[in-house]
Design a protein around this nucleic acid. Structure first.
Lengths: 265, 265
DNA sequence: CAGTGGTCTAGACCACTGG
DNA sequence: CAGTGGTCTAGACCACTGC
């Protein structure tokens, strides 16, 4: 917790960008942005793990040879991106998906009645889980070469005993080596939390494309609805620290008693 | 631009909350939050109008008798909420819907191909526009009494000549007195921009509930699709400064060549 | 060039947490 | 009580805009 000597060489952090090889745009980068980058490195490299606390602001200020205000501004931005969480009086912590009140951070489906996501935790059934060679489309989304090994999972989430979400998801094979259906079924808690603790992969950001569709025969029977029932198709790509895509997920949401909630600001 | 005397009494802004009547929670409120409140008041009251610049940070610091850093932090938060826009070297401006690059700020529908919203500006057709007594459901969403006058508009947006969005929207009658179908049709630009310039109503935030639905006969014919075509139902409530609901909008989106885009972070 | 927002510092003090 | 994040200040200087 109190390793003093910094990973930086002495004071390579001039206020100006230290770009050696002159190029088109000098692209002035403020000190706090550089600090932000250094903190990010420590997060990516696993120096500070999800749920743990990072060194105090004073500590970091000393390490990086800047003022507290500067590391503060860096941390502010990382906290705004939900990479860090500040807790007054306690410290600054690496954000995690494994917390009670932030569970299902990326799930926007809400029951029409009863504001909370708490109509009891969802029941999860793994329908299928296998490794395969990535089809071109999947490979593209995950920034792999087509033919690379990927893990494909199909599961159903039920609320109050009613199948509500049918999800297919694809994970790159290498980072998720060792993930099996048993491992998934045996785990209770958000899937993204398991990714963190078991595979060191933290999902930081995601993009979704939403459409209205009709299910095919298989999908309809799994969700126990007719083929004419309109469903929400939610295609999500989730990213780790470096904007690296690490998951492709295609969900079909039943929206007769639930809705997808979004806030625009 | 340079009115010096402040709207505040002398120095009623102690660092501590000046709550007289003691109650349960003292609820400490930092100075910059109070400044934020004062700025908000000036925005609501129309002192500073959309598109205009507000006084400089130094100016405001002098008015409110605080340091530049404090008004800076207040402005930072308001800028994060998109109520203000900072422009280095020029000043701080009141955000507006009437700008080229932020047009359609609340519209998340994107063409599947061609990243931009620019497949040419949408063609807009007002199908219907009338005043009526608010049904209970509409009244509730707009925080009115049922029976109060509301304006109901139905319109169709087409992209590349193809009807893609069918929208019904309801506005409270009083603030929007004088709004007619002609006024709407004659205006080219975002509807929310017209609300700002003509009625002084600025939409600041919105919440959407999204479902997959099938159209009824009327809706299907207006969108020129079959009754079995699944559509995205997007129900939006838009709010002004005080979290006052000022618009209810129900959209049906055709999502065969477009999708609703969302980013989770 | 003056005026604006943006960065950085150093220091004082406050609020919150936990031992 | 010590340690952490949170607020506030005063002042210096930088980057950007437009005249």
């Amino acid at each position: 917790m109190n390793n003093s000597s910094s990973a930086l060489a002495d004071s390579s952090l001039g206020a100006m960008d230290g770009a050696g090889a002159g190029s088109a745009a000098p692209a002035f980068s403020p000190l706090y942005q550089q600090i932000k980058g250094l903190i990010l490195q420590s997060l990516q490299s696993g120096d500070w793990k999800p749920g743990e606390s990072i060194p105090s602001e004073m500590d970091l200020a000393a390490r990086y040879r800047v003022s507290q205000g500067t590391v503060r501004k860096a941390i502010d931005e990382l906290a705004a991106q939900h990479l860090l969480v500040r807790r007054q009086g306690k410290g600054t912590f690496v954000a995690t998906h494994a917390e009670q009140h932030v569970q299902y951070r990326f799930l926007r489906l809400m029951p029409d009645l009863g504001n909370l996501q708490q109509e009891g935790p969802a029941e999860r059934d793994i329908v299928d889980c296998k490794r395969l060679r990535a089809p071109a489309e999947i490979a593209r989304a995950l920034a792999l070469r087509s033919g690379d090994s990927v893990l494909q999972v199909r599961r159903i989430l039920s609320f109050a005993g009613r199948p509500t979400i049918l999800e297919d998801l694809w994970l790159p094979g290498t980072p998720f080596k060792g993930l099996t259906a048993e491992r998934l079924s045996g785990y209770h808690g958000p899937m993204y939390a398991l990714f963190e603790t078991e595979f060191g992969v933290r999902m930081v950001r995601a993009e979704e494309k939403i459409r209205a569709v009709l299910p095919d025969a298989t999908q309809a029977s799994l969700l126990k609805v007719g083929r004419g029932t309109p469903l929400l198709s939610v295609e999500r790509v989730a990213f780790t620290y470096n904007d690296l895509p690490m998951e492709l997920r295609r969900g079909l949401y039943l929206t007769d008693t639930h809705h997808y909630r979004n806030v625009l600001s």
